[in-house]
C-alpha cells in the first residue's frame, strides 16, 4: 500500500455538538486529493452515518480513512457495547434509538442500509462486550481519479 493516504479520526460517544466533524474532515481530504465528487458523495453519506452511530449507539471509536489508487476505504472500530443481532440491525427501519435522540431526527433505522447501499464492499462484525467493526470500500467508477 505504498503511496496510500491514511488518516484516523476519533469519535466520542454522546458528542452531538461535534457530530459530523470527522465526516467533514474526510470530505475535505478527498476534495484536496481531487477525488471525483460522485465518489466523495457516497463516502460522505456512509461516513456521516457511521460517525453518528458511533456517537449515538457506541462507547466511542475511530474511523480510519485510506485512499488507494482507484478506491477509498473506511475502517471503523468501536469499544462496544456491540450489536446483538446484526441481521435485525441491517433491516431498514429497525432502530433502538431513544425518544430523545429521535426528536433530533435520528433513529429512522436507515443508517446501516445507507452505508451498504453506497459502498462497493461492506462488511460488519460485532461481538457483545467487545465492539463493532465495519469495513467499507468505495471504488472510483472510472478506476481513475484517486
Amino acid at each position: 500500500m505504498s503511496g496510500a493516504i491514511c488518516e484516523s479520526y476519533a469519535v466520542e460517544a454522546g458528542a452531538f455538538g461535534t457530530a459530523g466533524e470527522a465526516s467533514g474532515k474526510i470530505k475535505g481530504v478527498l476534495r484536496k486529493l481531487g477525488v471525483p465528487s460522485a465518489l466523495i458523495r457516497r463516502v460522505a453519506v456512509a461516513s456521516y452515518e457511521v460517525e453518528l452511530n458511533l456517537v449515538i449507539h457506541s462507547l466511542g471509536g475511530t474511523i480510519d480513512l485510506s485512499v488507494e489508487p482507484g478506491s477509498v476505504v473506511l475502517d471503523v472500530a468501536d469499544r462496544g457495547p456491540g450489536i446483538p443481532d446484526l441481521a435485525l440491525a441491517m433491516q431498514e427501519g429497525w432502530s433502538t434509538a431513544s425518544d430523545e435522540v429521535r426528536m433530533l431526527g435520528f433513529g429512522a433505522g436507515m443508517g446501516l442500509p445507507n452505508m451498504k447501499r453506497n459502498a462497493d464492499e461492506f462488511a460488519i462484525q460485532s461481538e457483545m462486550g467487545v465492539g463493532t467493526r465495519i469495513h467499507m470500500r468505495f471504488r472510483s467508477p472510472e478506476g481513475t481519479g484517486t
Binding site: G20, E49, L104, F106, M110, G111, N114
Partner: peptide
Amino acid sequence: DLLSWVMARGREGMAWVTVQAHMN
C-alpha cells in the same frame, strides 16, 4: 425531518425544509 432519509436524498444545491434546526 429524519436525517438518514435526508442524507440519502440530499443533493448539491438542494433547499431542505424541516423542523430540525440544530447543529446536526
